[in-house]
Nucleic acid binder design. Structure first.
Lengths: 341, 341
DNA sequence: CTGTTAGCGCCTTCAT
DNA sequence: ATGAAGGCGCTAACAG
């Protein structure tokens, strides 16, 4: 038996930069430069090396790379949910903004639990991201402190009614609620009902409600009946709570916490033979596709979810160092008159 | 001026394991053990160290940790889209399955572009994940080779009609289409129309169509009219194509590529005053909430998206080493009779 | 129960 | 245009 050093030769041996360097008979740094196409390299050398790369099936190890360069090229993203379609839409905007850049988003879902969010943020920071995009202003104290002290860029998405840690990108939900109120008052509605879902986890719905109340109050009006579902927003919940609302008071318009709930309201009216908007007007929030395609387009407020994601990325890429001044970016909203109110 | 060594003392100096060790007057490995709570440590030492951790605001660097331990605890996930709600639902299942485990999912979106998917997979593999969950069986040759050679666990999600690289978790779309056909034939329908969307990016819709055709063919029937939208599935597209279909032939049932399209069909009928299912029956696929809450519940086939995500994680966690045998997990489907067909 | 010693795989000066 | 040397921050044996 020859004196060969024992190795584990089989398939699973991961091939490293060094293996490529040996195979191509150049130094590791040359291979490194080529893999990152940075610095000058002779065309002949490059080809020789790339051949070795292919031959060995080399895949660079970004973990080692990030450690050495102290730059992970990672962005952390935290959203509360994926079942509410608005958040996937924000993610699409993020994705679109990231195309072509060398950054990579790492998405986490908090399920509307602030403690879980805290754990997620801690876990994300451990990956040394260049930035964190998080939903809203509601975080535990520890989360806020971690984000602040991390020194990385922080975008708080969806709303702009508070002071951000670094950057806020979104719209004023309070103003949206107010605008809805003004709009409906001008259209002659006076007997307002409200159909909503659990506010404890969705403070922005609450803010819209507050804005609505303010507009009504200024006009000497108020919301005369409320029907609130326990759980998250959903079509079925909207349907059931609309029935509840109608049994409570004779309202001429129902304002919903969002389009999902409002679509449920429409379906209830269809089933109950209630004419919309003559007997009951319906107003939502978000501007989802389903609302637009209903036989009678849903009256609602369009929020620009995709734009929020996109602008967030733009803001970060503009400068990956956190400046001393805080930024707020208003992506606006727009009343969509529709035909249900 | 005293002879102090110049440092950059300000906030941004990242604190490392070593800083904590020095501060607490223990060795680095002790701190390391405590941070990972692994191995035995005296309670007194632990507290002393944790105090230093808090005092310094130490956040472990997982990049360095992963490099040293050769274990990233990362799972790569690739879905084609987030706008089609079924994929967020799969992600929720993944998330649920991951809760409590020490793995973290990194999600990427291919936008139904196989070349982009290839780039994503390459990028993910560079992070040395323990597994990759990818959608479907349609990948570029290079993607397939990378996945195969990587040696990591690979789950191909959503469908099970082909041989997987490692694990397949999903349902037979061909059988679902076939079942829909049988069901509708038994209910007496004979003049079949089909409303669909772009097949090139959604091969599973095509498989359901093939299954449907097969069932019809066995009964001596066939699809007598097709209306296909160019773009992706959407309510609006379903609505418009239903109008097209009705102008083409006098069908008594329209089978849709999925529930989004089918809901559009329902809306078209409402607007056009077409009675469902008497004048036109409508059948979808997926079993989305909206279908169930319609005044007349949508007849459809329930797929178990959440379960697919969950089972995929289970399969991986069961053994993070790729075995030689391939596994297929059928998450099934179920006809939901509804009231539109 | 705690410390020591080597790396993990790559990048970044700095030479040459 | 290329190479050599020294880390990046942490973990993994092994001692003790």
């Amino acid at each position: 038996m020859t004196k060969t050093k024992l190795r584990l030769p089989d398939r699973k041996v991961k091939v490293t930069l060094r293996d490529v360097a040996l195979h191509a008979d150049v130094s590791e740094s040359t291979v490194s430069r080529i893999m990152r196409d940075e610095g000058l390299v002779a065309e002949a050398t490059r080809e020789k090396v790339m051949e070795s790369v292919r031959a060995l099936g080399y895949v660079p190890n970004r973990i080692a790379g990030s450690l050495a360069s102290l730059d992970s090229h990672l962005l952390g993203v935290v959203v509360p949910s994926l079942s509410n379609i608005v958040f996937p839409e924000v993610l699409q905007g993020i994705n679109a903004g990231l195309r072509g850049s060398r950054y990579q988003a790492v998405i986490s879902v908090s399920d509307y639990e602030m403690d879980h969010e805290e754990a997620l943020v801690r876990g994300i920071l451990a990956w040394q991201p260049k930035a964190i995009l998080i939903t809203g202003f509601d975080h535990t104290l520890a989360t806020r402190r971690m984000l602040d002290q991390s020194g990385v860029r922080v975008v708080e998405m969806m709303e702009i009614d508070s002071a951000p840690i670094d950057i806020a990108v979104g719209m004023s939900h309070r103003k949206a609620g107010y605008a809805a109120g003004r709009h409906l008052i001008e259209r002659g509605y006076r007997r307002f009902g409200y159909v909503g879902h659990d506010w404890t986890s969705d403070r922005r719905a609450r803010q819209r409600y507050d804005g609505l109340s303010e507009a009504l109050s200024e006009a000497g009006l108020s919301i005369i009946a409320h029907a609130i579902a326990d759980g998250p927003s959903a079509i079925g919940a909207g349907k059931r709570q609309t029935a509840v609302l109608r049994s409570m008071a004779d309202v001429d318009v129902a304002v919903f916490s969002n389009d999902d709930m409002a679509v449920g309201g429409i379906f209830h009216c269809m089933e109950a033979g209630v004419s919309v908007p003559d007997q009951l007007a319906i107003f939502g929030f978000n501007g989802l596709e389903i609302g637009r395609e209903l036989p009678r387009p849903l009256s609602t407020i369009r929020s620009n979810r995709f734009l929020i994601g996109q602008k967030s990325i733009e803001a970060i890429l503009q400068s990956t160092e956190r400046p001393t001044i805080k930024t707020t970016i208003d992506t606006g909203f727009e009343i969509f008159p529709g035909a249900t109110a």
